[in-house]
Computed example of a mutant assay.
Amino acid sequence: MDLLTPELGLFVWTLIAFLAVFFILRKFAWKPILNALSERETGIADSIASAERLKKEMGQMQAENEKIMADAREKRSQILKEAKDEYERIIGKAKEDTKAITDKMMADASQQIQQQKMAALTEVKNEIGNLAVEVAEKVLRKQLAGADAQNDYAKLLAEEIKLN
């Protein structure tokens, strides 16, 4: 048990040594240690505040980025809508132009057909007229072969002309 209970002399000398070291440390080392701890505490607090500030700025930047992305998406959809409208307008105009050209071609073709029809009818009428004259001439020659028949026919024509 001697090892577990210290003697009074050892206790006193240990206490004196402790107090001497304590006062020396208090006089020379305590203030620098406290200043260093205070500086470290201030540095940590500043770092935490800076981190919070950066976190807040990052949150703002993220919100701005999301807003910019939303604006970009909206602009993209607007551009796509305008492009689609322009596409439909161009297609509609092309259809209208094609229809106008087709209608004009049909009208021109119809007019040409009408002109050719009229020309053909005129030609047919002329041919019929020529044939009628030739047939009448041949009939009259046969009927008016004699001089008496010619005189009778001339008198008949003269009377019809006077009546008209």
Rank of each mutant, 00 (worst) to 15 (best):
D2F: 11
L3Y: 13
L4Y: 10
L4F: 09
P6A: 10
E7Y: 08
G9C: 11
G9K: 13
L10S: 13
T14C: 02
F18G: 06
A20Y: 02
A20R: 03
F22I: 04
F22V: 08
F23E: 08
I24Y: 12
I24M: 07
L25Q: 05
R26A: 03
W30L: 13
W30H: 14
K31A: 11
P32D: 09
I33P: 08
I33V: 14
L34G: 00
A36Q: 09
G43T: 10
S47A: 13
S47H: 05
I48C: 00
A49S: 13
A49N: 14
S50G: 07
A51Q: 08
E52R: 05
E52F: 03
R53V: 06
L54A: 14
G59H: 08
M61C: 03
Q62W: 05
Q62C: 04
Q62R: 14
E64T: 04
D71H: 11
A72H: 04
R73H: 04
E74Y: 06
K75P: 00
R76C: 10
S77P: 00
Q78C: 03
Q78I: 02
I79T: 04
I79N: 01
L80T: 12
K81R: 15
E82C: 03
A83M: 11
D85R: 07
E86W: 03
I90K: 12
I91W: 11
I91S: 05
A94M: 10
K95S: 05
A100W: 02
D103Y: 06
D103N: 05
M106H: 09
A109D: 10
Q111D: 12
Q111Y: 15
Q116H: 11
K117C: 01
A119C: 02
L121E: 15
T122F: 12
V124Q: 15
N126I: 04
I128C: 00
I128W: 01
V133R: 09
V133P: 00
E134D: 11
E134H: 07
E134M: 05
V135K: 14
E137N: 12
V139P: 01
R141P: 00
R141T: 06
Q143H: 11
G146V: 00
G146S: 06
A147P: 11
D148F: 02
D148M: 03
A149T: 00
L156M: 14
L157D: 12
L163S: 07
N164F: 13
